[in-house]
Simulated assay, not measured.
Amino acid sequence: MSKRVLVVLSEFGYWGEELVGPLDVFDARGYRTAFITPTGKRPQALPPSLDSEYIDPPLGRAVTTRDMARRARAMDDSSRLDNPLSLAEMLPERPYYSALNHLRDLEEYNRRLGAATGELLASFDAMVVVGGSGPIVDLANNERLHELILAFVAAGKPILAECYGVAALAFARDAESRASLLRGKHVTGHPKEYDYKDGTGFVGVEFNMGPPPYPLEYILRDATGPDGAFHGNVGKETSVVVDFPFVTARSTPDSVLAGELLAEVLENGLRRFGW
């Protein structure tokens, strides 16, 4: 039976190669993929990720080849991303503690959540959280996504997160302990050296945030705690870390390798790579 992968995308812009890279690997292996966004809105690629002449300011060079720009644009223009699933429709929203009947509301929430996550777990073998600047807006602190991540981890199903998508792993926490799922784990992600000083942008929003609102490296260092570690691998061309059930990828050039390693996890039981 072919593997089934749920691909999570931001509605505020994904980086083209960070979708196309893993997707090419999955397609070549005959995996079935489905896409999901926070509200079911069709995702769009960040314009710089479709431009082979765009110079990435921290790296001082182009990061998208002409071939990848062509493939990413073809994906973005295709009908494949039309009508994605909706996190808001598929998973319930946790009630406020100020709700008039909080205890009953919480019981109902947990009942509906169990049914929803159970259905998704039965449908998919793995999850991918695609990176880019968009996840900063609507994936990093998305409680519905956090609940889905918790469910996949509890079921022993792997999750690949790329670039700023890794933040969703750091913030996915048990409601009681509040400890990050990444505590004690080894991960990679966007290091401080790769962060923009200016020009962080999003699809559909005319707003220049300047630098990112948070340095992901610091969050990941704190989340992994004293027994885990963040690996920036600055100065190395690629950085992908596998610490089951997580596969984490630093940035754009790591996307194909990340997809290949997720396939190794699914097919050959890979549990550790990259440190």
Rank of each mutant, 00 (worst) to 15 (best):
V5K: 07
V8A: 13
L9K: 04
S10A: 10
E11R: 12
F12V: 04
G13W: 05
G13T: 12
G13H: 11
E17Q: 15
L19E: 08
L19K: 12
L19G: 07
V20W: 15
G21L: 09
D24G: 01
V25F: 02
F26D: 06
D27E: 09
D27R: 14
R29N: 11
R32N: 04
T33C: 11
F35V: 05
P38H: 10
P38A: 11
P38R: 10
P43W: 07
A45F: 06
L46R: 04
S49T: 12
Y54D: 03
D56P: 07
L59E: 15
V63D: 02
T64M: 13
T64C: 04
R70E: 08
A72W: 00
R73L: 15
M75W: 07
D76N: 15
S78P: 02
S78T: 04
L81D: 14
L85A: 01
S86R: 00
L87N: 09
L87C: 03
M90C: 13
L91P: 09
R94M: 08
P95W: 02
Y96E: 12
L100V: 12
L100Y: 08
L103N: 14
L106C: 03
E107A: 07
E108G: 00
Y109R: 02
Y109D: 08
L113E: 03
L113Q: 02
L113G: 03
G114F: 01
A115S: 12
A115T: 11
A116M: 06
A116Y: 06
A116D: 05
T117W: 05
T117E: 03
T117C: 05
G118V: 02
E119M: 03
E119K: 06
L120C: 01
F124K: 09
F124M: 02
D125K: 04
M127Y: 02
V128Y: 03
G134P: 01
P135F: 10
V137A: 10
A140V: 12
A140I: 07
N141H: 10
N142A: 02
H146V: 11
L150M: 06
A151N: 04
A154P: 03
A155H: 03
G156S: 07
K157N: 05
A161F: 08
E162Y: 14
C163F: 09
C163E: 01
A167H: 12
L169C: 04
R173Q: 15
D174H: 10
A179Q: 15
S180V: 05
L181D: 01
R183L: 08
K185T: 11
V187W: 00
G189L: 12
P191C: 13
E193G: 12
Y194T: 01
Y196T: 01
Y196F: 15
G199N: 10
V203T: 11
G204M: 10
E206C: 10
G210S: 03
P211Q: 05
P212D: 06
Y214G: 00
L216P: 05
E217Y: 09
E217R: 00
Y218I: 03
I219K: 01
A223G: 11
G225F: 14
P226S: 09
G228T: 14
A229W: 11
F230G: 07
F230S: 07
H231V: 04
E237R: 15
E237N: 05
V242E: 00
V242K: 05
V247F: 06
V247S: 03
T248W: 01
T248P: 01
R250I: 07
S251N: 13
P253S: 00
G259I: 14
G259Q: 08
E267S: 10
E267V: 11
R271A: 14
R271V: 15
F273D: 05
F273I: 09
G274D: 13
